[in-house]
Nucleic acid binder design. Structure first.
Length: 239
DNA sequence: AATCAGCTCAACCGCAGGTTG
DNA sequence: GCAACCTGCGGTTGAGCTGAT
């Protein structure tokens, strides 16, 4: 029996894998990830396939910088729901929970560090509140495994550190978000969308195709005979 | 031009909840 | 009711990019 760790590929997805995944998701839908992973011949877990699809390949995804409106919405919804990223993402069409999570993390770390900077080093960590993690949102961070509870020597902030800083600095995250938003002296520029990868045009053409399975299959065969043969061999045993 | 530090974001992991047999 | 499996979520990591020095 093969070791599972040998069986599945990890790391960055290749263009070919992307096209293959798009192909099979279009055929079988974006629900049965384990099945899609198996029949596609991708040596990836269903989980990995789902993540790639949801965070990168989904046709409705926006790319590029968050707009001020989106930033505002994220802050507002986070104040309301805490770290319910997927819930927040549902209110921002084209944005993923991962993207929002990353944005928030960057945003709050920046804010915490800016708050910390003017303070003297001694006053920053000896606050009376440091022992309690009772911010409005800690209830939502139950999944934390505690790996990153300590502020690192290099100044890295874990989520807990961020919450602590926010808590200590008196920034009430639940207060009307407009205050937080407009107090930031940020320059909101409209950047052009990021340049699309060259292969995106080919993906687009895939999406413009009908859901004709035979078409999809022949496409897969033409493009990636080896992968498809592999997939088909597992397919026959599954279907 | 080279190096370094900070930032971004894709991808992983572990866990929890849902579904199925 | 229960175990096994699958899916989705939230937290974390690290490679690569970018700007500063």
């Amino acid at each position: 029996m093969k070791n599972v760790q040998e069986e599945y590929r990890k790391g960055p997805w290749t263009e070919q894998e992307d096209i293959l995944l798009v192909n099979f998701v279009h055929t079988f839908g974006d629900r049965r990830w384990d099945f899609v992973a198996k029949v596609s011949g991708l040596n990836r877990t269903g989980k990995s396939c789902r993540l790639r699809w949801v965070n990168y390949l989904h046709p409705g995804l926006k790319r590029g910088k968050m707009t001020p409106r989106e930033e505002h919405l994220v802050l507002e919804l986070h104040a309301k729901w805490g770290n319910r990223w997927s819930k927040i993402a549902k209110k921002l069409p084209g944005r993923t929970d991962n993207e929002i999570k990353n944005y928030w993390r960057t945003h709050m770390r920046k804010q915490a560090q800016e708050k910390k900077r003017p303070m003297s080093p001694t006053s920053s960590s000896s606050n009376c509140c440091s022992s309690s993690m009772t911010t409005a949102t800690t209830q939502d961070t139950g999944g934390s495994n505690g790996k990153m509870n300590q502020e690192r020597d290099d100044g890295y902030y874990s989520m807990d550190d961020i919450w602590r800083e926010i808590d200590q600095s008196g920034t009430n995250i639940v207060k009307p978000v407009k205050d937080i938003y407009y107090s930031e002296q940020r320059c909101y520029l409209n950047f052009p969308p990021l340049a699309s990868p060259a292969w995106e045009s080919s993906l687009e053409s895939i999406w413009n195709m009908g859901a004709d399975e035979s078409k999809m299959s022949s496409f897969a065969i033409d493009q990636f005979p080896l992968s498809f043969e592999h997939g088909r061999s597992s397919w026959s045993s599954l279907v």
